[in-house]
Design a protein around this nucleic acid. Structure first.
Lengths: 187, 187
DNA sequence: CGATGGATGTTGACATTGTTCACTTTGCTC
DNA sequence: GAGCAAAGTGAACAATGTCAACATCCATCG
């Protein structure tokens, strides 16, 4: 509706969001390295220089993507926090891993060192908000024991990363979610 | 020694290794994205096309770097395996994390999804050898319990990645190695 | 020996990318 | 309606990965 290829008006109207949507699709299909600024512009049907009216270069586009990723992640964690029928600690871990597996390249981008290299305050803030929610979800019982909290976080994050990179051998027909739950609930 | 800048001979003599050494230095200083094939050639004092006589493009150079990384990693683990005075499980974890912190960008490259994307048998073999050694070091007691083994690996790997990305807040003057040991030895 | 061929480097070119600049088009405000 | 800022265009630039054609060297064989 917003983008009719034929008879495209000079002004797009909502280019910034259109760029982000296309960029997210390309990111998940091609990976960060395959996400070219010109590709995004081409996908939206706009000139190569147009994105610069909305983003301060390629890095800023990536940052915006990562920020939306953190926001979606945070929202997921919040829904867990408000559900009292759950074991928060376990549900958090399973959702954490599921988010990574459902959005592999977005997840990788969120933790991309290239983005952290140049100081991007927006990213830092979105990430901090996510971690705050994380700590809130896992509750005070863990918050008081820093070592235990870090151990739990490391286990969940490591599991997500290893699964994402295909490092953990999955046997044919194996239920990954069940395996994840088993690992997370160990002890 | 081999490369005297002035009076450089037409044939380098050991260009392949010289390229790898320079590439490793640049990698650790600039990150994978900042590692340009032309930069490496320039650093060695050779033309931009010369590396193609020794590597099948940029990806192959990166693969060779990652392979040497896995080899060094494997050698580290083997020295632990032959030392009977150690708690293998704990020492493995601490060494794992230390390797990541000592060679951050090399470690990241070893687990880079971009490299795994195109099937690189050499990389796969080097990685498999490393994991075999890992399983050997941690001993049969864990090998029999797949879930426990994966949980331990995930915790160690996650800890490495989170530290690498600066996600774990380190208080001023804190002893990181001690914190790592504490987290790894938890339970 | 001396020529000769394969390995190793060089030069120059090409397509592509991120980015900038000058310009044009559009919609909104007095 | 005049004019101005926002939003988009097109041409250009430097840099990159890569390749093809040419140059140089080293080792081997008559």
């Amino acid at each position: 509706m917003s983008t009719s290829i034929a008879n495209a008006p000079y002004h797009h109207g909502d280019l910034r969001n259109a760029l982000l949507e296309s960029a997210l699709i390309i990111l998940e299909r091609e990976g960060e390295a395959g996400l070219g600024l010109r590709d995004v512009a081409r996908a939206v049907g706009v000139s190569a220089a147009a994105p610069y009216r909305h983003f301060d270069g390629r890095g800023a586009l990536l940052e915006a993507l990562a920020v939306t990723g953190y926001q979606r992640f945070t929202r997921l964690m919040e829904t867990i926090a408000t559900d009292d029928t759950l074991d928060h600690m376990s549900a958090m871990g399973r959702t954490y891993v599921k988010f990574a597996l459902d959005n592999p390249n977005l997840f990788r981008l969120m933790f991309s060192p290239a983005l952290r290299r140049d100081n991007r305050p927006g990213l830092r803030m979105a990430a901090d908000a996510a971690y705050r929610t994380l700590r809130h979800v896992t509750g005070e019982d863990v918050d008081t024991d820093r070592v235990a909290a870090l151990a739990a976080w490391a286990r969940v994050h490591g599991l997500a990363v290893l699964l994402l990179d295909g490092q953990i051998a999955i046997q044919a027909g194996e239920d990954i979610e069940a395996l994840v739950a088993e690992i997370i609930d160990k002890h």
